[in-house]
Nucleic acid binder design. Structure first.
Lengths: 334, 334
DNA sequence: ATGAAAGCGCTAACAA
DNA sequence: TTGTTAGCGCTTTCAT
């Protein structure tokens, strides 16, 4: 890597002259500016990022901590973050907490040593369970702002981007009720997460508004055999004519399983799930989905953070942004 | 962030004493070391990463450039890279090229200014099509090693991690032939990629070893309606009794579509596809898959790079590592 | 118009 | 055993 020093030497001027010339300072003579720029161009000079960071005490880098990159929703949010960040000249350093509180703490610690200007994160499952927030608070106190998305810690004062999980599931369930469905089941493999709970509550609310109906939920563990559980569930609850799925896989599996058990979708059973375009393609008919606009969530989170970094917002002047979902009707509903 | 300077001041010793004490230098008195460490602990002192990077001229950071993070295979490789890197004390900066040559060049440029010690990347589709490699070569010449995985540029001398695509598809096709299948089709939505081409060639080789059989390939564009294309394909080629799918979605869709068209899987049609555990769950029966061990690919790539960085390997002393696939038999084959 | 010098936080050779 | 100093690459204030 060529440095200012080398350019200066070759041009027989001082380092500061070169620096100023490259930064279009008014102080430097036109002729000199030209010579400097030409040589810099020739050598493809780029200012050393690390030196700049040290000098200016900011890195133009955002730390992103996500629990699971194999989760398509989270990957998509990451995509949104990356794009928005890149558009503003920020890089992202990605850490994966693997749903572990320990790893989350560690990543926060590790990057809080000057590597990044702030964080965007989705709280790990273990952290939510244990309701630990101290590490978030102390990071913020160090002057490193945090933006949380999707799964957030309510006790922490910071910017947040969330989905209207409760409302979306409520509305989705209502739309099945409007089709005339009477036995609508709720299927989830994420009932350990705050968003999973919210979704179930939204479903339950819609159901319980009709005194003659009852809730019927299948809660599966992450590592259960989801196909088997869903098949058994269908077999043990014969009259199911509607399904609301809380995660991206369950809806697709429910449709294919229903078909395989001889039900017609959507004539006999309607299915709605949280999913993305590509995954909703994996069932026949295609899954009617609640789109969370993951990219927008990411973009919003990045905007909030960058705005905070560039305008030095106060620690308690925080925003919570709600990104609305859309119901994309497809073949699995009437 | 507390600095050495502040600690030194408070302890009434020099900065270098503090530095040495914290680095367990033999030079410093036991008593002093103790005092220093206690105060550092109290203030939760962490050496500033940026200053260290500048001083030592290395960042302990790896630049990862991937074409598409929504591709499950690539996300999984990223996961493998991150974990292996973290285990060795490296961070990763992730850039997404979006399959664009321009963005790939840009990312390489942007990070080659001291932000990272080296790169792990998967060549963008556009780059492969135009067969551009200059940006890779010049990055390497700058002293920043590159490790390529999956889609690689053969003309660039660097470490590589690849899958035995040709052989895997050849073997998969053979295994269908051994089931007695006579009309085995190949379905792909990635025939624009080097790996897509290799997979088709592996399939074709196995077929053409039997003079009485012919190849039958469905090549779809990325943004085609894959369900529709596959349905039409089945309808126009009545006798298909086996499918080899080159990408992760096509196999799943083929199974579900076959079922929906009234075929029994695997009795009437056997299907094998490249996929991951979670996606193979999306069809009933489950897809028999060629597992690429994406995490291992990532881990291997990270190892190669870190090894090179730490041992200063010569530019032409390069390795190509082939990660073998495994055929995971499931319900979609006999 | 140009240059010298300080300083960001740290390490390490050298001096005391 | 401890401290002084230089230097990593850069910007910027203050001379010249």
């Amino acid at each position: 890597m060529v440095t200012l020093k080398q350019l200066a030497k070759e041009l027989n001027v001082s380092i500061s002259t070169v620096s100023k010339a490259l930064n279009n300072s008014e102080e430097i003579g036109e002729e000199t500016v030209k010579r400097v720029k030409e040589l810099a161009e020739l050598y493809n000079y780029k200012p050393n990022k690390v030196a700049l960071s040290l000098k200016q005490n900011k890195t133009k880098t955002i730390g992103v901590i996500i629990p699971d990159i194999l989760n398509h929703f989270l990957a998509k949010v990451l995509f949104g973050i990356e794009r928005e960040a890149a558009n503003h000249g920020y890089n992202i350093i990605t850490c994966i907490s693997n749903e572990s509180l320990e790893k989350e703490k560690e990543s926060l610690q590790l990057l809080a040593n000057g590597s990044v200007d702030g964080f965007i994160l989705c709280v790990a499952q273990e952290t939510q369970m244990k309701n630990e927030v101290q590490h978030f608070k102390s990071t913020i106190k160090k002057g490193l702002p945090i933006v949380m998305f999707d799964r957030v810690a309510h006790d922490v004062l910071c910017d947040k981007v969330i989905v209207d999980d409760f409302e979306s599931t409520y509305n989705a369930t209502k739309s099945l009720l409007e089709e005339g469905r009477k036995q609508i089941a709720f299927i989830s493999n994420i009932d350990d997460l705050s968003v999973g709970k919210l979704r179930e509550r939204g479903y339950a609310k819609a159901i319980l508004e009709n005194p003659e109906l009852k809730v019927l939920a299948l809660r599966m563990g992450r590592y259960d055999d989801h196909q088997k559980k869903i098949r058994t569930f269908f077999e043990e609850n014969k009259g199911i004519d509607g399904v609301v799925a809380a995660d991206s896989a369950s809806g697709v599996i429910a449709i294919n399983m229903a078909a395989s058990l001889g039900f017609k979708v959507p004539e006999d059973v309607s299915v709605i799930g949280f999913s993305s375009k590509s995954v909703s393609n994996h069932s026949i008919p295609r899954l009617t989905t609640i789109r969370q606009h993951a990219k927008d969530i990411g973009a919003n989170a990045a905007q909030l953070l960058i705005n905070r970094l560039q305008n030095n917002l106060g620690e308690d002047d925080v925003k919570t942004k709600i990104v609305k979902t859309s119901l994309i009707r497809s073949g699995s509903t009437l």
